[in-house]
Amino acid sequence: MEDLHLEFTVVPDDFTRAGEVSGKVKKTLKDLGFPPLVVRRTAIAMYEAEINMVIHANGGKITVTINPDVITVVFADSGPGIPDIGLAMQEGWSTASEEIRDMGFGAGMGLPNIKKSSDYMDVQTELGVGTTITIKIFTNP
């Protein structure tokens, strides 16, 4: 199988559509016959990153590369950047507003969940420029 490339745009502040991209990729992976755990881990990591883009980063772009051995997802935004990545990686730490928390988000589990659900995670962030997160999920761990 040749690598399959998918590209999506995440719309900012649209909570009714948040999760659409993760859902589409999940369906594609299922249809391609990837193991359920690989599908679930990818869906969790992607949903968290997608929500982060909706809440914090004015949306962004998600690029997915599907290969039989590894699923690579790049989340790129031109949002405000993450001031302290160490803090942001801690469970429970969040800068989400009260309004966002009322919707059930902002538990401070986003980045930790992405890390837990993937085999590799790289975060490049610059204040005022944006954040790019790359994750890899190996399909035969």
């Binding site: 009714t16 948040a18 679930r40 869906a43 969790i44 949903y47 919707m103 059930g104 988000f105």
Partner: peptide, 15 residues
């Protein structure tokens, strides 16, 4: 006790 559409997105993804 959450009533919004995001519950549906998570329910679907978490199966």
């Amino acid at each position: 006790v959450m009533t919004n559409a995001n519950v549906v997105a998570v329910a679907s993804l978490a199966e």
